[in-house]
């Protein structure tokens, strides 16, 4: 019974994650410049991927598999903001150079 409830919650989490990822795609397509696109995609992607991993937790069956998913989620939470930060800085640097210092 409780497993069924957990799995239903997991399904809801996956649905929310899919929505966030979809929002990220819309942001990349519709936003005008690098910074706003990065804002949309990084936030929605962190949230989306982590939510999908959370939702997959009840379906793994083993403790080791669940632990792997948690580790992957932690890796996402550390690495994704780092990558967006690096991209934003590089874009800013290039913008400065193109405007003649």
């Amino acid at each position: 019974m409780s497993l069924a409830v957990l799995r239903f919650t997991g399904g809801l989490c996956i649905a929310a994650g899919v929505f966030f990822s979809f929002a990220a795609v819309v942001a990349i397509l519709r936003f005008p410049d690098v910074y706003t696109r990065l804002h949309g995609s990084s936030k929605a992607l962190s949230g989306g991927a982590v939510l999908i991993l959370l939702g997959a937790l009840p379906y793994t069956g083993t403790a080791a598999g669940a632990m792997k998913l948690v580790l992957i989620g932690a890796f996402f939470l550390v690495s994704n903001p780092m990558a967006s930060h690096a991209i934003a800085r590089a874009a800013r640097k290039r913008e400065k150079e193109e405007n003649g210092q």
Binding site: F75, V78, S79, M82, H85, A86, R89
Partner: peptide, 16 residues
């Protein structure tokens, strides 16, 4: 290299 934040984050991730 890149900024301080990325360097520290990389230092955190490299052992893993």
């Amino acid at each position: 290299g890149l900024s301080y934040i990325v360097k520290r984050g990389m230092a955190l991730l490299t052992p893993f």
